[in-house]
Simulated assay, not measured.
Amino acid sequence: MASVALTEAQARAAGDEVKTWVLPIDSVPRAIAGCDTRGPIELMIDADADRLLGGAITARERSDSVQTFAMARKLGMTTKALGQTICPCLTLVEA
């Protein structure tokens, strides 16, 4: 597992209105191709500002995704901007 910034509990404790987005790894083509579909990707989002508060991924190939979470958090990206970012196909980042 790898994570960046706040967990859902930490964000709520800080007073943020949080929406949580969870995607099972078995929905990601790279995980299917690599024959390891265990674990989720979870994003904690500020419901008011639509900005990433934190992210976590439980997967064998997690380093690229956690780097993307860190970049999105540092840049204050909205979920819309993050979703419009082009990611190479057959990486977990494309999730």
Rank of each mutant, 00 (worst) to 15 (best):
T58L: 13
G55L: 05
R51S: 01
S63H: 13
I45N: 06
S63P: 03
I41G: 00
S63C: 05
E61H: 14
I45C: 03
L53D: 01
P40G: 00
G55F: 01
E61Y: 13
A47P: 04
L53K: 07
I57G: 01
A47Y: 04
L52Q: 03
G34M: 11
S63T: 12
R62A: 15
L52T: 02
R38E: 10
I32P: 00
R51P: 00
S65F: 10
A56R: 11
L43S: 05
P40S: 08
D48F: 07
I41M: 13
I45K: 00
M44P: 00
D46Q: 01
A33S: 10
P29H: 03
G55C: 05
S27H: 10
P40V: 11
E42V: 15
G54Q: 02
D36L: 06
P29W: 01
I32Y: 07
A33K: 14
E42Y: 02
A31W: 04
S27I: 05
R60S: 12
V66A: 14
E61D: 13
R62D: 13
G54T: 04
D26H: 12
A31I: 04
E42K: 15
R62F: 14
L52I: 05
E61L: 09
I41L: 15
L52H: 00
V28E: 06
R62N: 12
L52C: 03
A47D: 09
A47L: 06
I41S: 00
T58P: 01
S65D: 06
A59N: 09
P40A: 06
A59V: 10
L52F: 03
S65H: 06
P29Q: 02
R38D: 11
S27F: 08
D46C: 02
I57S: 01
R38T: 13
L53S: 01
D36V: 07
D48L: 12
G54M: 04
E42Q: 13
D50K: 08
M44F: 12
R60Y: 13
D48G: 11
D26P: 02
A47G: 06
V66P: 00
D50M: 07
I41P: 00
S63A: 14
Q67E: 12
A49H: 08
C35N: 15
P24G: 12
D64K: 08
D50W: 04
R60C: 11
R60E: 12
I45R: 00
I57A: 08
L52W: 03
M44A: 10
D50C: 04
E61S: 13
G54A: 05
D46V: 00
L43P: 01
V28A: 08
S27N: 13
P24Q: 12
A31K: 07
R62C: 11
M44K: 14
V66G: 04
R51D: 00
L43R: 09
P24I: 06
Q67I: 10
V66T: 15
E42C: 11
D64H: 10
P40W: 01
A47H: 06
L43H: 01
R30G: 03
R60F: 11
G39Q: 06
I25N: 09
I57K: 00
Q67R: 14
D26L: 08
R62Y: 14
V28N: 09
R60N: 14
A59W: 08
I32T: 10
L52E: 02
A33V: 11
E61I: 05
C35F: 13
R38H: 14
D64Q: 15
